[in-house]
Amino acid sequence: MRTQRLTSYSYLLLGLFFMGVFTFIPVFLSAYLSLFRWNVSSPEPAFTWFSNYLEVFKAPLFWLVLRNNFIYAFTTIPVSMCLALFLAILVNQKMGTIKSFYRVSLFYPTMIPMVAAAMLWVWIFNPGLGIFNYYLGFLGVPRIEWLYDMRYALIAIIIMSIWKNFGYYMLIFLAGLQSIPNHYYEAAAIEGAGGWKKFRYITLPMLAPATLFVFVVAIISSFQVFDQVFIMTQGGPGDRTNVLVFYIYQHAFRFWDLGMGSTLTTLFILGLLFAIWLVFRVIGRKVYYEV
């Protein structure tokens, strides 16, 4: 028994080593550094207690960034999850060989790198030459400046991100759907349940673990959004697409304000941990796992 435990720990050791070097140490180090003033004006770190935190909350830009990120999260998460579920159910139907074609084409955006996709969408959103306005034109929508208009830039990023992310969620839903035993549906059919009732009382509850997983992943990824902002707008125009990670990046690597960057990082990690704890507390208990 003892040796068995020892062996399993020794297996974990390597993983723990890399986690430690690349995750835990940096996390605690940045929490520690967040108590220092360390930037271009003060090249030697100076201990200043929590003054960085006060400065963060005092900056109006921080609240705008937070607002942008919450708008992004509250739109991308429900829309991409509903879309993913809907399409997963659709491609799970019996429809012969064409099915795999559909699955691949729906999953395709997830497979291309985010940076490449972002470059592509810069052109799709181009007001004069892009196809997005071209097609909207058929619907009678007047020309929109998308990435160059303060009112629409964030919406453009949201549209692009939903397109990019829903395929991954769809795949998880699809796996969940396929693990639901067919006899539940057969039993329900014998009892005379219709399509909606089957969905409501079998599919949805059985998908709960997959849904919880997708939800947590979606929350994390919606607060980690960075690549598309970096490529498409650089946070502009007028900071209307500036989001948390980009804001951290600006402080740490553009302004070279390491104290401030560490402070924002620490707040970011705490916020995200809290959000996920909340999700597991509120929803996690209701999820039923079939053993």
Partner: peptide, 16 residues
Amino acid sequence: GPPHSTWGSTPPDFVG
């Protein structure tokens, strides 16, 4: 004139 644009997008705009 457009209120906002990016450094990389305007030369192609001129060409186009």
